[in-house]
């Protein structure tokens, strides 16, 4: 069972999709509003595929495995009532400590520079990650990776171009971009941390050995930052982590309160 691994990827997609969707209708340029919404839709689409796959794995699990999968009371009640979980139960009925997304992705939009920097770090990671994951021994994950790679290749081009445009634009945009690059740097290390789920998935050929991606990621980030006339934050600086274990920043609780409002207020209904 690759439930923990699937959920991590699902949560990453869901949370970044949510953050990007907050821009819809508020972008600085109409064409960019449309472009960013496209990207939000890509992430949301991937989140749905992964949540569906996670639900299927949960439904096929033993009673003991089910008991240990989530802390959510609502999910336990559904399971006790003999109901199968859907993609929506996975997204809307878990609290923060059951969420396994990277801390980077729950950070607020703040402005265009922070949004671009967050996307740039994550899109670069995704590009190399899905390039590897498409060879996964899990055929569902491999198929999702293959589809995602096409989308992510475009995301990476989009965010890299904006890093360069803002870095090598005006003095103000340069300063804002450098600040965003610096402040979000502390959340990038977690992308490469191998936890139990990562180690298990990598050893069975399901998952990706993240250590292989780190040098590729670092080289690409350095190359784009140089083109953007921006400086790379120092190597070896302190990195925040915890998202992969369900210990989040304060931001996630508010995302979930908003996102889950309908399902929590009107439980068990079809929409």
């Amino acid at each position: 069972m690759n439930l923990a691994y699937t959920l991590r990827l699902a949560d990453d997609a869901l949370i970044i999709g949510h953050r990007l969707s907050e821009w819809c209708g508020h972008g600085p340029i109409l064409e960019q509003d449309i472009a960013l919404t496209n990207t939000a839709l890509d992430h949301l689409g991937r989140a749905r595929s992964l949540c569906q796959y996670a639900a299927a794995q949960y439904n096929a699990a033993t009673a003991e495995e089910k008991k240990n999968s989530f802390s959510s009371v609502a999910i336990q009640q559904l399971t006790e009532a003999g109901k199968e979980l859907t993609e929506d139960d996975i997204a809307y009925l878990r609290d923060g400590w059951d969420y396994r997304n990277l801390l980077l992705l729950e950070q607020p939009n703040i402005d265009w520079a922070f949004t671009v920097a967050r996307a740039f770090y994550y899109d670069t990671f995704n590009y190399y990650f899905f390039t590897h994951l498409k060879n996964s021994s899990d055929s569902t994950l491999a198929a999702i990776a293959e589809k995602s790679l096409k989308e992510v290749t475009y995301h990476l081009r989009w965010s890299s171009e904006w890093v360069v445009r803002l870095g090598d634009g005006t003095d103000e945009s340069h300063n804002r971009m450098q600040q965003a690059i610096n402040e979000l740097w502390q959340y990038t290390g977690e992308q490469f941390v191998m936890n139990d789920a990562d180690n298990e998935a990598a050893s069975t050929g399901v998952g990706v050995n993240l250590a292989e991606i780190l040098p590729l990621w670092t080289a690409r980030i350095a190359e784009i930052l140089q083109e953007a006339t921006l400086s790379m934050p120092p190597a070896g600086s302190w990195m925040q982590q915890g998202g992969k274990e369900g210990r989040h920043t304060e931001h996630l609780g508010y995302i979930l309160a908003e996102m889950q409002h309908m399902q929590r207020t009107y439980p068990g209904m079809e929409w």
């Binding site: 265009w112 360069v164 005006t170 103000e172």
Partner: peptide
Amino acid sequence: GKWVRDAAMAH
């Protein structure tokens, strides 16, 4: 969004 549009133009 003004600073973003200005930056895109300058670049």
